[in-house]
Computed example of a mutant assay.
Amino acid sequence: MRILVVDDEVVMTRALRRGLGAEGFAVDVAHDGRTGLDLARDGAYDAIVLDIMLPGLSGYDVLQTLRAEEVWTPVLLLSAKDGDHDVADGLDVGADDYLTKPFAFVVLVARLRALLRRGAVPRPVVLTVGDVALDPASHVVTLRGEPVATTAREFALLEYLLRRPGQVVGKVELRDHVWDGDGEDLNVVEVYVGYLRRKLGRDVVATVRGAGYRVDG
């Protein structure tokens, strides 16, 4: 398995190269964001270890560019910031995992192996269908590039459907996940689908009679 490590701490990257090599990984190293981005674009890597604070381009910039270009290589973000919002920001921009410095080498290896087991699965940061786009990080929905105001329930319903493009999702599943199965009548799903259609267009969410709803990505 080939791993790309992008970090400007030279001593640490040397140690990681030796340690990961001893674990059977082939390791390439970059010490700035631009070089890391070029390698990640052109190299056939099974996973990327990416620091956030980098010269040239930040780890966030590298990651967002890769995901925008549909490069789905699993990414483990490294950062000295360990706040809940820092972790959430990293995952929202497209990371697959987040590890704070300082870290135990055995934990890094274990998390890399977990990423490798999952493999490179498309995980777009912004979910789109036709002219509609939903950004989970900024909590913004747009129609042909213009923001559309949505309630929290409308947003959650649309996000759940957009994460399952082409799949028929039943009313019970939608109620249980969007309304947390808290005793809401199933008709509430139909009502909120109607709200979304009025705001985004009737063709955004298709009704599959007797089965549920579907969006086609």
Score class of each variant (00 low, 15 high):
3 I>F: 00
7 D>P: 03
8 D>P: 02
9 E>L: 01
11 V>D: 11
11 V>S: 13
14 R>D: 14
16 L>D: 07
18 R>S: 11
18 R>Q: 12
18 R>V: 12
19 G>Q: 06
19 G>Y: 03
20 L>M: 11
27 V>H: 07
27 V>I: 08
34 R>L: 15
37 L>Q: 08
37 L>V: 09
37 L>D: 07
40 A>Y: 03
40 A>S: 04
41 R>K: 15
43 G>V: 07
44 A>C: 06
44 A>E: 13
47 A>E: 11
48 I>G: 00
49 V>P: 00
49 V>R: 00
54 L>M: 09
55 P>F: 11
55 P>K: 13
57 L>P: 05
59 G>W: 02
62 V>E: 09
63 L>F: 11
64 Q>T: 13
67 R>L: 09
69 E>T: 02
70 E>P: 08
73 T>N: 09
76 L>M: 03
78 L>D: 01
78 L>Q: 05
79 S>Q: 00
81 K>W: 10
82 D>Y: 09
84 D>N: 10
84 D>S: 11
87 V>W: 03
87 V>C: 12
91 L>D: 06
93 V>F: 01
96 D>T: 04
99 L>D: 05
100 T>C: 07
100 T>V: 07
102 P>Q: 12
104 A>P: 08
104 A>V: 10
106 V>D: 14
107 V>C: 07
108 L>Y: 13
108 L>V: 13
109 V>C: 04
109 V>R: 04
111 R>D: 12
111 R>H: 14
112 L>R: 01
113 R>F: 10
118 R>W: 02
125 V>K: 08
128 T>N: 06
131 D>T: 15
131 D>K: 04
132 V>E: 01
133 A>E: 02
134 L>V: 15
134 L>W: 02
135 D>L: 00
137 A>N: 10
138 S>L: 13
140 V>L: 12
142 T>L: 01
143 L>Q: 11
144 R>D: 11
144 R>V: 07
149 A>N: 11
155 F>R: 11
157 L>M: 06
160 Y>Q: 14
161 L>M: 07
162 L>I: 10
163 R>M: 06
164 R>C: 04
164 R>M: 04
170 G>L: 02
170 G>A: 03
171 K>R: 15
174 L>R: 02
175 R>Q: 04
175 R>Y: 06
176 D>A: 13
178 V>P: 02
178 V>R: 03
178 V>E: 00
180 D>R: 13
184 E>V: 14
184 E>L: 06
186 L>N: 10
186 L>R: 05
190 E>L: 06
190 E>F: 07
190 E>I: 07
191 V>D: 15
195 Y>E: 06
197 R>A: 04
197 R>T: 06
199 K>R: 15
200 L>N: 03
203 D>T: 15
206 A>S: 13
207 T>G: 09
211 A>N: 05
